[in-house]
Design a protein around this nucleic acid. Structure first.
Length: 574
RNA sequence: AGCUCCGUAGCUCAGGGGAUAGAGCGACCGCCUCCUAAGCGGUAGGUCGCAGGUUCGAAUCCUGCCGGGGCUGCCA
């Protein structure tokens, strides 16, 4: 039940009827007609812009349309008043019992309230994290992980069939570096002093991997040339890293549906296939690239390369898929990977990338556009950097200085719930300050506690009411304006879900929950001044039961919203 | 130089064609014999970076400029 959508339908029906009666010209486009909550609550419960939008195409005065529409709307039992206001708004005030039925509906629907059929079962692939398997996940990855996971949950709630996917970059030079680094730790495990050359990964997290390697291979790899052990060590080390990353993700509460391997694309003809597919569309050619604009590298030499004509699909320059020595660039397996996703039949693709990869968005979009003949939309969500702070001071993160902050550090200090919620209190394209001191504080500075506190208060009331043997009812008693305001907020939930899902913006859920909690706390405090508004009414079980229905509906929505964000709704605050 | 994101209250940020632009923090004034004050109410605080354009209507869309972050051939 989405009241805004329902009333919009009512408006559209009446506009159609007016057309039928000749009160409006034929063939008008009603798609811009909106029914929305007004900015100012004094204007009513919802407003429609129908008259203003239609005035010009209908060649009529907005007020004339609005005045003709108003009595038709008030004929519906749900609409109490419809007033023309401002430049032509039609402000609607709904019948008071609408809010009561809404609460009943929410309690009946429970966790399904707000679930939408927006996606209509379309399949969406959300690729996120995709951190290189060369070390533990650090804070920079956390935001992308949380964002991708919450977006996936949001889309599922909005009726999409969602696949969460991680692309393992295990095919490039960096996994060779990993293997060499682990090999040194393997030597160390044998009592030899490791030679961590410049360019190798120095982190301690590889020490146990070296030991495990010794467990498996004994001393059989010692004093052997790289060609002898590189492939085995690489596979061993990559698997160890992926096990670590999976554990990190699990700690954050992220579970992937599919792990795709870059390495698995090599030597199987899949890259060749993908490139051939592009070639068959006339998008592959041998050519020279212009030097980059602006600062030209000193050692620039024009070289003939195999290029992808990405400019035919919106990119700024064509991109090399093959190096001048004939080997693939990193871009080639990316093409094959996205070709694979297209062929698996997804209706939509989403790539969640760090903002530092922003330069790749256009070429990947070009790939998907070319390989799907423009059929499959790809949305690239860029995640801005996380600025680590401590007491308002920037907190530098450096591998060398040993202040390398891992996902594990963050989750162990702040907890998964706090980490997830805070990471979602910014738009993905805005930088985020993550202040350890502030986040550990259990106060109003911390939005997670604010929302959870509201939920905990409701659960507390509910526990008390059950102890008192109350017979709950789904029929609420809504008297006060603070209660009406809260109910209206609940009415916005389905609409908000659709807006957030449409825009791929899970942060809207977090902000909504904050507002909902705020309305709830306001009502709660009103009970301090006006005891008759308290949920639990001494000696009046029937009234108590009716008063509790509204907060129960609030807890249903908070719980659903937090569920989308992957945050546990607290039963109590300790 | 190009591409891209950002510029809204002292600070951190929502809003992203509609009416008088919002929240939190900070400041100031109030509210606990009470379902958890981890809360609530109020006051003060704004040329929505600048200039044009589109529109009945622009913080929102377009163009240009200014300022800041990120990226910018054969690394991933």
């Amino acid at each position: 039940m989405n009241i805004f959508a329902d009333i919009r339908t009512l408006v559209l029906e009446n506009l159609a009827a007016m057309t039928g009666e000749g009160a409006l010209p034929e063939g008008l486009d009603f798609s811009a007609v909106a029914v929305e909550p007004p900015r100012d609550a004094g204007h009513g419960d919802m407003a429609t812009n129908a008259a203003m939008v239609l005035a010009k195409p209908a060649r009529m005065a907005p007020r004339a349309i609005a005045e003709a529409l108003a009595p038709r709307l008030t004929a519906d039992p749900r609409v109490e008043t419809a007033e023309v206001a401002g430049p032509g708004f039609l402000n609607l005030r709904l019948a008071p019992d609408v809010w009561g039925s809404l609460v009943q509906h929410i309690l009946g629907q429970s966790a399904d309230y707000g679930r939408s059929n927006l996606g209509a079962g379309q399949s969406v692939n959300v690729e996120f994290v995709s951190a290189n398997p060369t070390g533990p996940m650090h804070v920079g990855h956390v935001r992308g992980a949380v964002f991708g996971d919450a977006l996936a949950s949001l889309l599922a709630f909005a009726g999409y069939a969602v696949t969460r996917e991680y692309y393992i970059n295990d095919g490039g030079a960096q996994v060779d570096v990993l293997a060499r680094s682990v090999y040194e730790r393997y030597r160390e495990a044998h009592g030899l002093s490791p030679e961590i050359a410049e360019g190798l990964y120095p982190g301690d997290y590889l020490v146990p991997v070296g030991e495990a390697l010794k467990e498996k291979y004994g001393d059989s790899l010692l004093d052997k040339g790289e060609q002898y052990w590189l492939a085995d060590v690489r596979e061993f080390a990559t698997e160890a890293m992926m096990a670590m990353i999976r554990a990190d993700l699990a700690q954050l509460g992220v579970k992937m549906d599919v792990y795709s391997s870059e390495k698995a694309l090599y030597g199987t003809g899949k890259i060749e296939e993908a490139i051939d597919e592009l070639r068959s569309k006339g998008l592959i050619y041998e050519g020279l690239l212009e030097p980059p604009k602006g600062k030209v590298p000193d050692d620039w030499e024009p070289r003939e390369q195999t290029l992808f004509r990405s400019t035919a699909h919106g990119d700024d320059v064509d991109r090399p898929v093959m190096k001048s020595d004939g080997s693939w660039t990193y871009f080639a397996p990316d093409i094959a990977y996205h070709w694979d996703k297209v062929r698996r039949g997804f209706d939509q693709l989403i790539d969640v990338l760090g903002a530092d990869h922003g330069g790749y968005a256009k070429r990947i979009k070009a790939v998907v556009s070319a390989l799907s003949d423009g059929r499959v939309p790809l949305d690239v969500k860029l995640i801005q950097l996380v600025k680590l702070m401590k007491n308002g001071e920037p907190f530098k993160m450096s591998k060398r200085a040993g202040t390398f902050v891992t996902l594990r550090d963050v989750v162990e200090q702040a907890g998964a719930d706090v980490t997830r919620f805070v990471m979602l209190t910014r738009k993905n394209d805005a930088p985020l300050e993550f202040d350890f001191a502030r986040i550990l504080e259990q106060s109003k500075d911390n939005p997670v506690f604010y929302v959870q506190y509201a939920h905990a208060r409701i659960r507390s009331v509910l526990r008390k009411s059950l102890e008192a043997g109350l017979h709950l009812t789904d029929v609420p008693l809504i008297e006060d304006e603070a209660e009406v305001k809260l109910a209206k907020r609940l009415a916005e939930w389905p609409r908000l879900v659709e807006i957030a899902a449409r825009g791929h913006e899970p942060h809207r859920i977090a902000f909504y929950l904050y507002d909902l909690a705020s309305d709830f706390h306001a009502l709660w405090n009103r009970g301090n001044d006006q005891p008759e508004l308290r949920f639990l009414q001494e000696g009046d079980p029937a009234r108590s039961a009716a008063k509790i229905a509204l907060p129960r509906a609030v807890s249903v929505v908070i719980s659903a919203g937090l569920g989308i964000l992957g945050v546990t709704p607290a039963e109590e605050m300790r």
